[in-house]
Structure formats: C-alpha cells, structure tokens
Write a protein that binds this DNA or RNA. Structure first.
Lengths: 218, 218
DNA sequence: ACAAAAGTGTTAAGAATACACCCATGT
DNA sequence: ACATGGGTGTATTCTTAACACTTTTGT
C-alpha cells in the first residue's frame, strides 16, 4: 500500500511599512517549538492544491486570505528530515506580498505579527534559511520584474518607492540615478497630486503605468 | 485522520549532443497515456526525500542514477488537478544535466531515449508545459551562472561551447562577441591541445577554470 | 587550389555610476 | 529665517552590439 510523505505548506508574506520590509510571523502554540515564532504554515490535504491549503492555513493562523494579497508565487519546496514530529515532511513554500495600503487584518488566534526583516526573533525549524532564500529571490526579482508594484499603494511618491528598493536591497541608492532609471523604464506616470507630510517640500505622487505584475518566476 | 495528497516526482534530464539540446523521455507502459512519451517520474514515499525518490525512479525507468548527473536542482512543484488517476497529485520536478562525454547509460525497461528539444513527440499529462518552463529557466541561468560547465566535456573548443549556447538560447550568436565575453568572464583557460575534425583549421581546446557550478537557483 | 570552419579588433551606442546644488514647505 | 526632505543634470566609465577579413587544415 502506497504511503505518501507528510506534506506541509508555509507562507512568507511580506509588506513594506514605515520604510521597512516586514515579514508576517506567528507564535507557535503546539510542540515542537511552542512559543517560538515561525512562518504561518500547516498540513496540505488530499484533494486540495497546495495553494488552496495555503489559503485555509493563512485564514486560520493569521486571519488573512490569499485574495487580499497583491502577489503570490511559489517559492521552493523544502524537504528536510526532522521538520515534522511525525517524521520526514515535504514543505511547499509560497511567497506573497501585501500591498501597503491594505487593512492590516489579523485575528489573534496565533498572534500574527509583522516583523522588520532587520530584526527577526529566533525562529522555529529551518525557517530562517527559508526566509533568507526568499529575500535573495526578492532582491533578484526587483531588478528584472516590476514586482515593486505589488508593495506600493496606488498613489505613491518616488522617495517612497526608493525606500522600498533600499529596504529590499539593504543598501542606499543614489536619488538621481534611481529616479532616472525608474522613469527610463516607464514604470510610472505622474499624477497632479502632491503628498504633504512634514515641514518640507511636498512630494509629487505617481502611479504605475501597468498594474499587472510580470509573472516570470525565476 | 490526516490524509496527505499523492506526491510524485518528475525529472528533466538534459544533455548537449551533436550540436543539439536533448531531453530524456520514456515511453509510458501504464495507463493513463500508455504508449505516450513522458518525463521519467513516479511516486515519492514516506521517509524518503524527494531527491531520493528521484534517484530510485531514474534508476528504475532510465537506468541512470543521480550521481551520474553533473548538475541537479529542483525546478518547481506543480500541482494540478487530474494529473493522476487516483486524484489530485503534487509533483516536485527536478532539473538535471548529463555531461556530454558521459556513457549514455540506459536500460531498456521503459525505452528511455533522448530527444532533440526542437522535435519532441506528443507528451503525456502537462509535461509539455513543464518542459517549456525548464527551458526558460535554463536560458535565464545561462546568462548569470556558469551552468554551461555542466554540459561540456572537460576539454572542448569554443565553437562547441558556442553551439551549446545557441541550442539553449535558440538563436545564432556573433562569434567574435561570444568569444570576447567568455574570455572576459575568465570562465575558461587554453590548453595546448587541438581538435582536428575536418578539412579545415583545427580548433584549440579549452577547459573551465572552476569546475564548481554556481548553485544559485533563481 | 579550393572548400570549410577557426580565429581575430575596432567602432558606436547605450547603460550604469559618480557627484552638488536649488526648491518648496511648516514652524 | 531656518531646518527638512524633494527635486534636478552632466560627465565618465563600462557594457553591449554590429561588422569582414585572414588563417589553417584535408582533399
């Protein structure tokens, strides 16, 4: 009789908030690693695609459903010995982006919480490895896709967009070169609105020219 | 009681032979799609990593084991309704490269055979989609990794290397620019051997400077 | 001597980088 | 009036692309 491996699904939900790149974590209630932070995840069941499983799990653990995400792609499938108390498990991971302006939904079932990527708490399982993998992928995609679209609200200033790039790439960019490149790609178009938010010159607001996100996952 | 989904594993084994990019297919013996060509694949079992499963399946279906491959990476995990007669299945796919000079091992269990990428037979399941995905990935990796190393024999001429690039990218490249770029990356070094193979000037043989293949999978 | 593939450099255009000052606002 | 972040242009280097003739061999 055929006995398949345990299949789990884990989600990496990012957002850009307050100039920082943030990741959604939950605090585990069950053993192993009870009380430790972890990626929201759970078991996939027969008759369900892994994406459907991801959806149910995110709703249960973080009060968030996939339709609220601006972007979702499969990240990688990790199979590691000792991930699961019941033995070897295969985990399909998904990488999602929550748009900045969206309501920050979260039931408190497992105290879902966004953490700045720069200061993550200790993590359960091999989740730190998975997160590093996701960030490297995100950095790579930033250069050859318009994935930035997924993070930004519909109207945004170029300094805000630059802040997104900087928090993902984890380095400062030259303001003039950044603006020149963004404009050269014609990724964005001007609006006639301004954003006033301090005792300094207001920023012009832009919107993206095409809202579709390139869907090449490499 | 928890019932996991069916888990399958499929392999995409490429090689570069006779100036063409080739892919390993087997002819299915069982239903569904009996008699149709397909990627070598099968079920993953409890207590086995997907990579171990890939190994046993390749041995059984094509008389080839993973250690004979020059390169292996995970490609993607497809879950599609109707892939499996027993219902919904999740398939983890691996992408492998067989070095040119390697013995072309193959038991005839399921008549494993290499096909030119340019003229593939009709394929079972959604395997055509998976293959297209793999080729796109391979094309992308060619530009930012030294994955070409995996295809070439230890000693090779630059025209042979160019032929590999051309068969993967499916377009002609300029000879002078190609050689300049390869040399600029210092990917290769000259040997003092020559390859004579026709009534024309012999080609100088080269070897790769570092045999390690970059292992960034993006 | 000729056919056939190997080998070789230069120029032009475009992309990426470095860099410093003026502008519009709130207090 | 001043502090704060928003906004703008040019020069240089590096990268990419286009392009044609000579060399060495086997027959």
């Amino acid at each position: 009789m055929y006995r398949p491996p345990i299949l789990t699904v884990d989600g990496l939900i990012f957002r850009h908030n307050d100039g920082k790149l943030e990741l959604l974590l939950i605090k585990r209630k069950a053993e192993p690693f009870a009380g430790t932070y972890a990626l929201p995840g759970g078991y996939g069941s027969h008759g369900q695609t892994t994406q459907q499983a991801m959806d149910t799990i995110l709703i249960r653990k973080a009060g968030l459903n996939l339709k609220q995400l601006e972007y979702l792609e499969q990240l990688y499938t990790f199979d590691m010995i000792g991930r699961d108390p019941r033995g070897h498990a295969v985990s399909v991971t998904y990488f999602g982006i929550l748009k900045n302006a969206k309501p920050k939904v979260s039931s408190t079932t497992e105290s879902p919480q966004f953490f700045d990527i720069q200061s993550l708490p200790p993590l359960a399982f091999d989740h730190k490895t998975i997160i590093n993998y996701a960030i490297t992928r995100l950095q790579a995609k930033l250069s050859y896709t318009n994935i930035a679209v997924a993070f930004m609200p519909t109207h945004f200033s170029l300094p805000q967009l630059q802040s997104l790039y900087e928090s993902i790439l984890d380095r400062k960019l030259d303001k003039r070169n950044f603006r020149k490149q963004i404009k050269a790609q014609d990724l964005v178009k001007e609006t006639d609105e301004l954003l006033r938010e301090g005792r300094h010159r207001p920023a012009r607001l832009y919107q993206f020219t095409n809202k579709r996100i390139d869907t090449l996952h490499f």
